[in-house]
Design a protein around this nucleic acid. Structure first.
Lengths: 337, 337
DNA sequence: CCAACGTTTGACAACGTTGTCATCTTAGCG
DNA sequence: CGCTAAGATGACAACGTTGTCAAACGTTGG
């Protein structure tokens, strides 16, 4: 909460020659304050280093100034990046960012949410995969009319902020990238099929294959589950099912790493014998050797924007725009230069 | 961030036939309340599902009920585990857990801290490496008399909660583990030398070597920087400097992975030709193939305990015990069975 | 049985904001 | 120039706790 020492709205009011209510208005960007007074108040506040006391605000306004991120994703890099984007936005707006890892062992996501809401008040929620696709959770949130944002949801919601990338388009562009580099025998290494994103990426893969008129028999699908190990074992499958494959598109970086490690272990050279493109541009994609060509989505910015828009929604009580698409970029690295 | 609906201390007081102050005392575990009344109040509160309103508490008591974790560690798994332990403890005690990644680009850690404290009030701080070794930061905290905890500090502080493992002992036990498995040519792959932990682990390594009377020429030190890539390049150095080495102790898992990947790429077999033990028991140690034998420290518990003790300190204003040592365990896996 | 003292209890004023509503300005218009 | 409506401003009561301090209650020893 509050600030430096013990400056209150009253000190500012006195010094600025206005009432405390006017100061309050200024700090809440409320209408009906003459620009001139606004400037004076802001000037005085800056000079004195005033920061509003959050607790008092919470108490008086019955808002919590808390935005909570609900997640259950084992990928801590991803979660951290979301948290960082959120934190940045919250910090700009005077909100608190908190994160809550849902524990599926404690019953459903829905139950975890209910437990949480019983104990804490939040002004807004941010859900990321796989929680962002749990319709039971979403129903509870909508029932309570809590503003919320969905990051990369499988199914966009009308009454929510949706931030996402074009998963199918991303799948296409990775596949095209491989094709343009002369690969004629391709493989897609899928993630968990229950994740909408994996299915959409795959759809893009097939679309690109078709469009490039690559014979179906020269393109395979290997199933994985997003884990490093599943990438590792997928390599054996690849050798068996499609030994001529030279270009691989893995639905995430971890599987790409697993597959590369397996390939190196069997004496294959990457990228000479086998080119691999991953997805997510995770820190490991950079750190590995060979480093991994990967499609980057601006997770930090997605979280930042959704938090900003969420706070806007909370303040105005109006959801202006519900869909925000972000563009992606293939980061060229060693595994498929 | 209050509760369920709109129950206040007054509702409880009325129903229990006492004054609001007594209810307040009960909820703060304050002394001088007859046990009988205490039970009545707690009973009523439970029946009605009352939760105290945190904002009002904050405002009236001038406490913030916020514990903040200051960190700057690129290992998001580690940071997340700390956050989770903290969050659990905070949740049990009705506190908020927040995390702040310090940005060294914005000047010193000290400056980041000052900026933060100017904007937010916290009741306690938790520092983890490398921030837990920044004496300038610690000085500022002590100057303000904010209770704080250090996780794995290089230098324990008298007026703080210190939670740690025996780094040197851990280094010894990993080295002994390798020696007991018959390895006679060993290597230690160091982390950044500026990290006290790396130096201590190395000290344990040499102690074990000496005690086992292994000739100094059969034991080498390779320098790394905790990054995967440094593990990768360390392999070349190993081949050059000590090709007979069969047992390797890496100061963290990432370097162990890098080294293993390099070795596999050169046709070496792990663990047959080269056995590797890592440090941290990170998720990747489990996921890799071969999975990596690694020394696990109970990070979650360390964070949980330090948060609990910190809150105790905040409440009683007395620091009862300042040092808490945790024990570690080598998790046997494929890279050195 | 009473004085003296510690323990328990409660009334009421903070805490620093925002909400409500009344009042004072200002601008627009005939 | 006067009237009206809209805009700007402020006084004061919430908000739900804890802090302070005084009063009531119990217990002990004489």
């Amino acid at each position: 909460m509050s600030a430096n020492k013990k400056l209150t709205i009253e000190d500012i009011a006195k010094k600025a020659g206005v009432s405390i209510k006017t100061v309050s208005r200024v700090f809440n960007n409320a209408p009906n304050v003459r620009q001139q007074k606004r400037d004076i108040v802001l000037g005085v506040a800056r000079d004195l280093g005033y920061q509003p006391n959050i607790s008092a605000r919470q108490l008086a306004s019955k808002r919590s100034f808390v935005i909570s991120h609900f997640h259950d994703n084992p990928n801590t890099d991803y979660v951290s990046e979301i948290y960082e984007g959120m934190r940045r936005a919250c910090s700009e707006e005077g909100y608190y960012a908190v994160a809550e890892k849902l524990n599926p062992q404690k019953g459903s996501y829905r139950q975890s949410l209910l437990d949480y809401l019983l104990r804490f008040e939040v002004d807004g929620l941010i859900l990321s995969p796989p929680v962002s696709d749990d319709q039971a959770v979403i129903r509870e949130i909508e029932k309570r009319e809590i503003p919320y944002a969905l990051i990369s949801p499988g199914k966009k919601k009308k009454r929510a902020i949706n931030v996402f990338i074009d998963e199918k388009g991303a799948g296409r562009s990775i596949t095209d990238y491989l094709i343009n580099r002369g690969h004629e025998n391709l493989a897609f290494l899928s993630g968990l099929n229950s994740h909408a994103a994996s299915r959409q990426r795959e759809a893009g893969y097939w679309e690109a294959i078709e469009e490039a008129q690559i014979p179906k028999k020269n393109a395979v699908r290997l199933s994985g589950d997003f884990s490093m190990r599943s990438g590792f074992t997928a390599f054996d499958m690849l050798v068996k099912k499609a030994p001529k494959t030279t270009g691989i598109f893995a639905a995430n970086d971890e599987m790409a790493i697993g597959l590369i490690v397996a390939a190196l272990g069997k004496g294959k050279k990457v990228p000479e014998d086998l080119s691999v493109v991953g997805f997510d541009d995770s820190p490991f994609a950079r750190a590995m050797w060979p480093s991994i060509t990967s499609l980057a989505q601006p997770v930090d910015e997605m979280a930042h924007l959704s938090t900003k828009k969420l706070i806007g929604w909370i303040h105005s009580n109006i959801l202006e725009q519900s869909r925000f698409e972000f563009s992606t970029k293939i980061i060229e690295r060693g595994s498929c230069p």
